[in-house]
Design a protein around this nucleic acid. Structure first.
Lengths: 187, 187
DNA sequence: GCGTTTTTTTGACATATGTCAAATGAACCT
DNA sequence: AGGTTCATTTGACATATGTCAAAAAAACGC
């Protein structure tokens, strides 16, 4: 759990009482490549912290799997829309590699929010940070050509290309696998 | 200020003490079409609540203005990245119509966060909601064709097409003005 | 109402990306 | 090592969208 605590410290400092409450509810799990954290059509009931491994989130769009983000060690993972709105989501989150995760349920988290102002603050700040990351991604993808998006990816997040099958990466960049293959061939 | 208070009530309930503190720091302003709330290269120091009117946010990319979102009455507006990270941003926010706005500075807001758990919670919940909205937009734009994006826009947010010049809408959809014009011609 | 400016549409053509099918290459299992 | 599966590349062609220039339409000021 120390990796998680270290990670949280980057966002804000929690007092000991908050840390202790958090420690009491966190559940550790080791999961296998290919299994799912969340599947479409269900209400997402947990937030996960990824200690080791990687996952992808994908939609089914017109019968095709459309991967739209990845997460790696030291990040939080959930089906954001579903978790926040308490409605069934459209997304699936699947392990790309074997993972070690820590999880907390929605009710547990709300209880921590009520009980500890520090944790409410942590939630507020984390939401801010994750918003900024999504915004950056949005701007990059929306206004640049496929080639530029790929170049940006290999400089900003080379681990994605290294650890993720090409088909998923293409989908992530919003292009077909063939186009990505051709872009790579010319670099 | 009542519109703002009503709006906030959609997210969560504030106790009277928090509401009073909020009322003490909010500044009202009437601004003219064409003027700017925020310009590129500066650290954004305020969050605005838009009571009347509309604004657009745009980047300068290779000498071209690229509009990437709009806001209308009853919504919050800021240069999210810059406001949160306290760094200069790349974005400009300009009034499309005359506006009535309420504003609060970064320091004032942090002070309210410290003083009132209710307001910390409001911040946390608002961040969640705005994240979900951005995510929805991201998914729509990233994985659908221009035509579908436009159709989605006129059903989900017809006021945008009605109140905003076509060039800005095209940019928002990630296409050129000519392409948008042709799409409209065929519907 | 009339000229001026801004916004939107249209045309001709260039380019980027998608689609489908097949070939190649890599990983995996026994 | 050989066969099987899965991942990636290549080819030929279709289509969507961009670019540049000009025309048409709408909004604006006097």
């Amino acid at each position: 759990m120390n990796t998680l605590v270290d990670h949280i410290r980057q966002y804000c400092v929690l007092n000991n009482s908050a840390l202790k409450s958090l420690g009491l509810v966190l559940q550790k799990a080791e999961l296998q490549k290919g299994s799912y954290l969340i599947t479409a059509g269900k209400v997402c009931d947990k937030v996960y912290f990824l200690q080791h491994g990687s996952v992808r989130a994908f939609y089914n769009l017109d019968g095709k799997e459309v991967t739209y983000w990845f997460a790696f060690e030291n990040s939080f993972v959930t089906s954001y829309f579903s978790f926040v709105s308490r409605k069934p989501g459209m997304e699936n989150i699947q392990l790309i590699e074997d993972c070690t995760v820590w999880s907390i349920t929605y009710d547990q988290l709300q209880h921590l929010y009520d009980k500890h102002k520090d944790i409410e603050r942590l939630g507020r700040i984390m939401n801010e940070r994750y918003y900024v990351m999504l915004e950056e991604r949005f701007i990059n993808n929306h206004f640049k050509e496929a080639r530029e998006r790929y170049d940006h990816l290999i400089t900003q997040a080379p681990h994605i290309v290294q650890r993720v099958p090409l088909g998923y990466v293409a989908s992530y960049l919003g292009i077909t696998q063939e186009t990505l293959s051709r872009i790579r061939g010319k670099s």
